[in-house]
Structure formats: structure tokens, C-alpha cells
Amino acid sequence: MSEKLIEFRDVSFRYSEEQPWVLKNCSFDIYKNEWVAIIGHNGSGKSTIAKLLNGLLYPQEGQILINGMEVNQDSVWEIRKEVGMVFQNPDNQFVGTTVQDDVAFGMENRGFDRKTMIEKIETNLKAVGMQDYLLTEPHRLSGGQKQRVAIASVLAISPRVMILDEATAMLDPHGRGEIMETVSEVRQRNDLSLITITHDLQEVVQADRVIVMNEGEVWQEAAPREIFEKKEELRSIGLDVPFAAILADELQLAGVPVARKGPLNHEELLEDLWTLHSRT
């Protein structure tokens, strides 16, 4: 495995002394250029992890290190240069009157020179397919277009890690697919680590690794295929598995063999069925 970029060391957090712990002795690592999906039932601590990573919150116990730097009030502005976040509702992130103003905002705060800003606005809007909307007012964009601009705004500050906190939840399936395809391409080009916090199983299966949260603790972490083989265990903590894996089980119960254990999507299932039954 490559070098560690993020380290959670026995992190615990609660929003007030009267409330229960949202995270309890939570430990995990995320590596350079890795794509990690964080999943769990509502209230399991997923979004709290995102806010802790970005310095919007600070742990009451334990340590969080980003690229070797501890996240605290003294380091928060340096941390936010390393970690960019895209939220569920992009309207909450817009501050500019036009698309180009919004992409420029983060760079202005960090003292980028004008020439660099112009180059980065053009490059990053092109990367997400929004180069023709420079002077468009953000509120005139569709939901998917707004998320593309939000992603471009984060990319413009050149972070080492991007967090998508339910960033596709408000989009239809086609819009979600487009955004995740864009994010995947951008990640490869920019050597980004990517953390996706999501309920969308089609996003989860694309990740290199999955961290499953349950009641504030890391319940399991492994590759998507290994995680989704634990169907009954996942259901016991309120999570589901990909439809293709469920259908494969039903086919086998009906006497139709499937080559691969637990296909993650319909392409894999069709390939398995074709491979097996083309020989018969």
C-alpha cells in the first residue's frame, strides 16, 4: 500500500455532554490516491467523520492527522488546503454571482495570482464539462450542473483529498452516474484521494475500499466485494447489498448457476451468466 494520507487514531466525538457519543474510539487510515467509500445507517457517524476531516469539527478524544499534520484550531486553514469537500446541496457552497466567480472564490482566499486563477478556472471547469457556463448565474443551473461547478471549485484549490458527503443524493440515477464518472476521471488525472459518503450502492462498488460504520464504530473495512459477501450481517445493521448480488442468489436458489460469488453489478452478472451458459 502507498503512503498514508489520513490517520484516524482512536477518535471519539459527541455534539454535547448531554448527548451520546457519535463516534467511539474510531480508527482507520486512508492512503494516497485511494478511493474509500464510507457507508452506514443514518446516525452511524459518517457525516461527522467528513466534518472532522475538514476541520468543521474537532474530536474530544483521539487524533486526526492529514498528511502528517494534526487537525486542530491552529492547523485548520492549512488542513483545508489539503482537504476539499462537496456537500449534498451545492447551493450551500455557492458564493459567487457567476460560475467563474464561484470557482475563483477559494483561490482568492488563498492568495493565488490572477494568471494562475484564470488558468485554473478554465482547466477545472473544462475537467467537469462546464467550460461553456463561465458567466452563468449558479441558480440557473440544473442540480447536476451545480454539483459539477462545486467539484470544479474544490479542484481549483488543488487539494490532496476530496470528500463527497452525499453529494449525489439529490440527483436522479442518470445525474448520479454522470457526476461519479466525472469524479472518477478527475481523480485519476489529479492523483486525488477520494472519500465518498453515500447510500448509493453503485457508487460504493466503484471504490477501492469500503469502511462500514455502525453506531459510531468501524464495523468492517475491506474491498467492496468482500464487504457485500456479508449479506446477512449487513442487513442486521440496517444496510443493503447490490441488487445484482441479490438476484444472483435467487437465480442459484432456482437452480440457475452463477459463476462468480456475489456479482456487484448487472454487467458482472450478465457476464457470468453468458460465460456459464454459452458452454452448455
Results as ranks from 00 to 15, higher is better:
77 W>F: 13
78 E>R: 09
78 E>H: 12
79 I>H: 03
79 I>A: 05
79 I>W: 15
81 K>M: 02
81 K>N: 07
83 V>R: 00
84 G>L: 05
85 M>C: 11
85 M>F: 10
88 Q>L: 07
88 Q>S: 11
88 Q>P: 14
89 N>S: 15
90 P>D: 04
90 P>T: 12
90 P>F: 14
91 D>H: 07
92 N>G: 09
93 Q>T: 09
95 V>G: 01
96 G>N: 08
96 G>A: 07
98 T>F: 06
99 V>Y: 04
99 V>L: 03
100 Q>S: 13
101 D>I: 08
102 D>F: 11
102 D>H: 10
102 D>M: 04
102 D>V: 10
102 D>S: 05
103 V>W: 03
103 V>N: 08
103 V>H: 03
104 A>S: 15
105 F>N: 13
105 F>K: 13
106 G>Q: 10
106 G>L: 08
106 G>M: 12
106 G>S: 13
107 M>I: 06
108 E>G: 06
108 E>Y: 14
109 N>P: 03
109 N>Q: 14
109 N>Y: 00
109 N>G: 12
109 N>R: 06
110 R>T: 11
110 R>A: 14
110 R>F: 15
111 G>V: 04
111 G>L: 05
112 F>Q: 10
112 F>D: 14
113 D>T: 01
113 D>C: 12
114 R>M: 09
114 R>S: 15
114 R>T: 13
115 K>I: 07
117 M>Q: 14
117 M>G: 06
118 I>V: 11
119 E>N: 07
119 E>Y: 14
119 E>M: 07
121 I>P: 00
122 E>Y: 07
122 E>I: 01
123 T>C: 07
123 T>W: 09
125 L>H: 01
126 K>S: 14
126 K>I: 08
127 A>M: 13
127 A>F: 12
128 V>H: 08
129 G>W: 00
129 G>R: 02
129 G>M: 08
130 M>T: 05
131 Q>I: 05
131 Q>P: 01
131 Q>M: 01
132 D>K: 05
133 Y>A: 07
134 L>K: 02
135 L>F: 15
135 L>I: 04
135 L>E: 15
137 E>I: 04
137 E>R: 13
137 E>C: 08
137 E>P: 11
138 P>V: 01
139 H>F: 10
139 H>Y: 14
140 R>M: 10
140 R>Q: 12
141 L>N: 11
143 G>C: 03
145 Q>C: 12
145 Q>L: 05
146 K>Q: 03
147 Q>W: 01
148 R>E: 00
149 V>S: 03
150 A>H: 04
150 A>F: 00
150 A>W: 00
152 A>M: 06
152 A>I: 03
153 S>D: 08
153 S>V: 09
153 S>M: 07
153 S>I: 07
156 A>C: 02
156 A>M: 04
157 I>F: 04
157 I>E: 02
159 P>W: 03
159 P>F: 01
160 R>H: 11
161 V>N: 01
161 V>K: 02
161 V>F: 08
164 L>W: 06
164 L>T: 00
164 L>G: 00
164 L>Y: 15
165 D>M: 02
166 E>S: 06
166 E>G: 04
166 E>A: 09
167 A>K: 08
167 A>W: 04
168 T>L: 05
168 T>I: 08
170 M>H: 10
171 L>S: 02
171 L>A: 03
172 D>M: 04
173 P>M: 00
173 P>T: 00
174 H>A: 12
